[in-house]
Every structure is written in C-alpha cells, then in structure tokens.
Amino acid sequence: MNKLPLFVIGVLCTFAFSWLGLVVYPFVKLGHLEPVPDEETGGYFPPTLSGAAVAGQQVYAANGCIYCHSQQVRPASLSTDIAKEVGPRRTVARDYLRERTVFLGTMRTGPDLANVGLRKTDPNWLHRHLYEPRSVTPWSIMPSYRYLYKMQKIQGQPSANALRELSGRHAPEPGYEVVPTDDANALVAYLLSLKRNYPLPEAPLPAAK
C-alpha cells in the first residue's frame, strides 16, 4: 500500500459526505429559523418563554428527564401519536427554536411531554407528582424528586406556595409543610409551558371537527 494519501483522502471524503449532509445542512437550514408572527395577538409562534421556564430547562437536563420522556409528536403517516393524543399535530423544527438544549428524547418509559402543558394545567398537581409520583398516579414508576422540595416547620401562617392535598404516608407531620425550591418551581414552569398547539405554516392544526 504505497498509495497512502489516496487511502487517507478516501477515508476523509466518505466521512465528509455524511458531515455535510447530517451536520452542515441542518446547521444552515434548521439552525436559523425565525418565529412566525401571530397576527391576532401580535405575539409569536412558538411563544416566548418566561425566565422561570428557561431556568426549568436546566433542571430538566440536570435530572435527566430525557431518559424516560420524549418531546416529539410523529406525523400520522408514520405513527399513531396523534390518535393517541400525544399532541394535536406533528412537531416540526420551528417548535424547538427557543430550547437551549433540544430534548427530543429516545424513550417513552414515561409519557411524551411535548404537550404536557395542555394536559396538566394545575401547578399543584405537577408538584405533588414530582414530590411523590405514586401519591397521584399509583402505577407510576417515576422516581420521587423530594430533593427538590423542603420540609419545614410552619411558622405562623402556612406558606402560600406549600404543596396542597398531600395525603397518606407522603403527607408532612402536623405543624410541617412541604414547599418547592426554586428548582422545583422552575421545572414546573417549564412543564406548564410545553404546549405545541399553535399553528405554523409548515404544520397547521387539523380543522376542528
């Protein structure tokens, strides 16, 4: 093999081919999308995120929610996602342009979260679920995120943000309360923000029946 340069060029060219297709192309075409103006409200699709929701993305990443929860709705031609009410329409590239890390996910050990904010609108329910999943969903295998909450003695009046309706063995002792940390509040704000139910030119909502 005295044609070493030829070999090296071949090795690098085959690789560059996929690099152009699967890295450079999406970088150019998908990496610079713009939100679409919403003429009715003067807002944008996808909507801007609150500061708490942005902070919640970091909590989501740090605790590895992605290893059990996907965030994508596949089109009806390829899956039953829409029939199973994972979301009202397929998700497209523009849906993710506000995410610092895109949590598409590869597992559905737990339910998809692309539209969790449409299904769950009560922050207290989400807090109870994170604090002790089996207190609200008995068959859940999600781990408890108690470490994102503080158990504290009630000083005078109970705190306004204390978790309500904790029952059974998960309930705090009398005189004590469970309050979310900043991380828990941010995570819940992020989950509530996950609603991909706005129309986009490339992904219109299905006509109302």
Binding site: V23, P26, F27, V102
Partner: peptide, 8 residues
C-alpha cells in the same frame, strides 16, 4: 439552534 441539535 433548535432541532439541528438532534441531527448532530
């Protein structure tokens, strides 16, 4: 930005 991350 965005879903290009998934591809990379």
């Amino acid at each position: 930005q965005g879903s290009a991350q998934g591809a990379v």
